[in-house]
Simulated scan of single mutants.
Amino acid sequence: MKRFLFIVSVLWSFGLMAQNSVLFDKANTFYNDGKYAEAIDAYNQILDTGKHSAELYFNLGNAHYKLNNIAPSIYFYEKALQLSPNDEDIKNNLSFARNMTIDDIDIIPETGMAKIINSLTHYLSFDGWAKTVVVFVFCFVILFLTYYFAYSTLRKRIAFLASMASLFLFCITLALAFHKYNLDQKDRPAIVFASESKVKSEPNTRSEELFRLHEGTKVQIMDTISDWKKIKLSDGKTGWVTNEDIKAL
């Protein structure tokens, strides 16, 4: 019975992959023909099956951008960038989409060693750093065994130095992996989807209005109370908006 269920599961997975491939080609055809709304519908059908990829989000962002849907285009470009953080095409298109936003918010620049460490940390995803850690552990074990069993003094010396270098790189990449994990845990980005959102001083409609945000602006979610989210901007400003005004990434 278990074997039968396994076979059914495998066949269902292959069938779903084939269906998604057909849908993806169909969506791309719609996009190339200038039928962007139809392309979006087809791409969303793939998302509904639980399939996620940088390419899928990127194409969704492109289709929304063509229709001047500011918030959705930025949202899907950001989703694509989460899965493929070093893709220059995604970065460029995201930059074009951000140029359509109204809000001009300053970014507090990082300086010194913090800038270097964070820049290096964001070069790979957490999974990427974890895989790199495993590679250096494997290299250390192989090189140390080579050192242990080598007869030649020169080979022993080279293997020992190489194994120590692998151990050092293992420690560095392990630290970067944990740092990336901690940054990801604190990173709760969202995109403003409301055409205009009133940012309040407290999580209620009677509180003072601090400022207003417009669609496409990226914020960080700091806290949640009932139907309200506390947000923080890149310039350090904070306030409360209703849940319906933003969409978490």
Rank of each mutant, 00 (worst) to 15 (best):
L23Q: 13
K26A: 07
N28H: 07
T29K: 15
F30V: 01
Y31I: 01
Y31T: 00
N32K: 11
N32D: 10
D33E: 12
G34I: 07
K35I: 04
A39D: 11
A39Y: 01
I40N: 10
Y43S: 02
I46D: 09
L47T: 09
D48E: 15
D48M: 14
T49L: 01
G50K: 02
G50V: 06
A54V: 10
A54I: 04
E55H: 06
E55A: 14
L56E: 06
Y57F: 15
N59V: 02
L60W: 00
G61I: 06
N62H: 04
A63W: 05
H64S: 14
Y65A: 05
Y65T: 00
K66I: 00
L67W: 00
N68V: 03
N68R: 11
I70N: 12
I70P: 05
P72V: 04
P72E: 05
S73R: 05
I74N: 01
I74A: 08
F76V: 00
F76E: 09
Y77F: 15
Y77L: 04
E78D: 09
E78T: 11
K79Y: 00
K79P: 00
A80F: 02
A80W: 09
L81W: 08
L81F: 13
Q82F: 07
Q82E: 15
Q82R: 10
L83N: 02
L83A: 03
L83H: 06
D87K: 09
D87R: 06
D87M: 03
E88W: 10
I90P: 02
I90Y: 02
K91M: 10
K91G: 03
K91R: 11
N92K: 15
N93K: 13
